[in-house]
Amino acid sequence: MKSSSNVFLVGPMGAGKSTIGRLLAADLRLDFKDTDKEIEDRSGVDIPWIFDMEGEDGFRDREAAMLDELTQLDKTLLATGGGIVLKPENRKALASRGRVVYLMTSIDEQVRRTARDKKRPLLNTEEPRQVLTDLMNLRHPLYEEIADYVIDTDGRSPKSVAQELTRMLSS
Rank of each mutant, 00 (worst) to 15 (best):
T114D: 03
T114F: 09
A115Q: 13
A115K: 14
R116K: 14
R116I: 10
R116M: 13
R116Y: 13
R116W: 10
D117K: 04
D117F: 03
D117S: 04
D117T: 02
D117W: 03
K118G: 06
K119H: 10
K119W: 01
R120Q: 05
R120P: 00
P121I: 05
P121M: 08
P121E: 04
L122F: 03
L123H: 01
L123S: 00
L123Q: 00
N124K: 13
T125N: 04
E126M: 12
E126Q: 14
E127H: 15
E127I: 14
P128A: 10
P128Q: 07
P128V: 08
P128G: 08
P128M: 09
P128K: 07
R129E: 11
R129L: 08
Q130A: 15
Q130V: 15
Q130I: 14
Q130R: 15
V131M: 14
V131S: 09
V131G: 08
L132I: 06
L132D: 00
L132M: 11
L132E: 00
T133I: 08
D134W: 06
D134C: 09
D134L: 12
D134Q: 13
M136Q: 09
M136A: 13
M136H: 06
M136Y: 08
M136G: 00
N137P: 00
R139V: 09
R139I: 10
R139F: 06
R139H: 07
R139N: 06
H140D: 14
P141C: 06
P141M: 08
P141Y: 02
L142P: 00
Y143M: 05
Y143L: 06
Y143K: 06
Y143N: 04
E144A: 15
E144R: 14
E144Q: 14
I146E: 01
A147L: 09
A147D: 04
D148V: 08
D148W: 03
D148F: 03
Y149T: 14
Y149Q: 12
Y149W: 12
I151Y: 00
D152I: 09
D152C: 12
D152N: 15
T153F: 03
T153P: 10
T153Q: 01
T153W: 01
D154S: 11
D154G: 10
G155Y: 10
G155N: 12
G155M: 08
G155I: 06
R156I: 05
